[in-house]
């Protein structure tokens, strides 16, 4: 114990110091209000996507968000991962038209395929800006990874539209959102109670709609999440076993060494 104690204390201090550095290094968010903390199906070590919520979320993306926001990293075939059948995905992709060329090189269009990326709502950035008062609706493929706060932040934005407080100078064409940095957001409130009607009869209150679309967007940003969690559990369990085994071997080997 004589030599063990200082070593352990040293290890603990150094570990704590490094951990402290790492934890606090996560940059502080310059936001007046912290977004609500939602209990997501996909969080935690065993988290999986609530399939029904993700499918409802896709319905919202398809009917509402996709009018302005692209999802260009995602494929239609990704929807199989939230429980759509191959035939459903095929029909859905086929309902979208994609630019193509005829055999003699004339511009035309063709039906989409499951292997196509989600179609962009606008042909280019200029068109997108022109249709949105100069603002560019961001691509949503990795939006939950591209914002501090992740899913909670996106949920906060979707539910954070309120009337500007008295005395707040809102620039023309912008909207007030309590969770958006600076509070002035170009996007008008996209979701309200009963913006969509769910085919499965789930309540279409704003809170539910926001949860569903965030679940969908989190899936699109992390399509590997469930496989990653499953593999992680196996890997960590295996490593714990291997640690125990190697530690036992070490103890046995060192048993006769005075050190």
């Amino acid at each position: 114990m004589r030599t063990l104690r200082p070593t352990l204390i040293g290890a603990a201090l150094l570990g704590a110091a490094l951990l402290g550095a790492v934890v606090t290094a996560a940059p502080a968010r310059a936001q007046e209000e912290t977004e609500p903390s939602v209990n997501w199906s996909f969080s935690g070590l065993f988290g999986t996507f609530d399939r029904a919520a993700a499918q409802r979320g896709f319905q919202i993306y398809n009917q509402v968000c996709s009018n302005c926001h692209s999802l260009r990293q995602a494929y239609y075939r990704d929807l199989i991962g939230i429980g759509l059948s191959a035939q459903q995905v095929k029909d859905l992709a086929a309902s979208k038209r994609f630019p193509a060329l005829t055999e003699d090189g004339q511009p035309t269009d063709r039906p989409g395929l499951p292997s196509d990326h989600f179609r962009d709502p606008f042909p280019n950035e200029l068109a997108a800006r022109a249709a949105n008062g100069g603002g560019l609706p961001p691509d949503l493929s990795v939006i939950v990874k591209a914002r501090e706060g992740g899913p909670d932040y996106v949920y906060g934005i979707l539910t954070g539209f309120i009337d500007a407080p008295a005395g707040f100078k809102l620039m023309p064409g912008l909207n007030y959102n309590k969770y958006f940095p600076g509070h002035q957001i170009a996007m008008p409130q996209p979701l309200r109670d009963a913006t969509v009607t769910y085919i499965d009869g789930t309540s279409n209150a704003l809170d539910q709609e926001a949860r569903d679309v965030v679940t969908f967007l989190t899936y699109i940003a992390n399509p590997e999440l469930e496989e990653r969690h499953r593999m992680g559990v196996k890997v960590v369990l295996f490593l714990l076993f291997l640690t125990g085994l190697s530690y036992a071997v070490k103890r046995k080997l060192w048993a006769n060494v005075h050190h």
Binding site: R228, G232, L242
Partner: peptide, 23 residues
């Protein structure tokens, strides 16, 4: 002696690494 002792350290290290990568 130290190949085995370092193996213990590597295993523990991999656990921390894996927690970060997978979760």
């Amino acid at each position: 002696y130290y190949t085995v002792k370092d193996s213990v350290a590597i295993c523990v290290y991999f656990i921390v690494f894996a927690l970060l990568v997978f979760f």
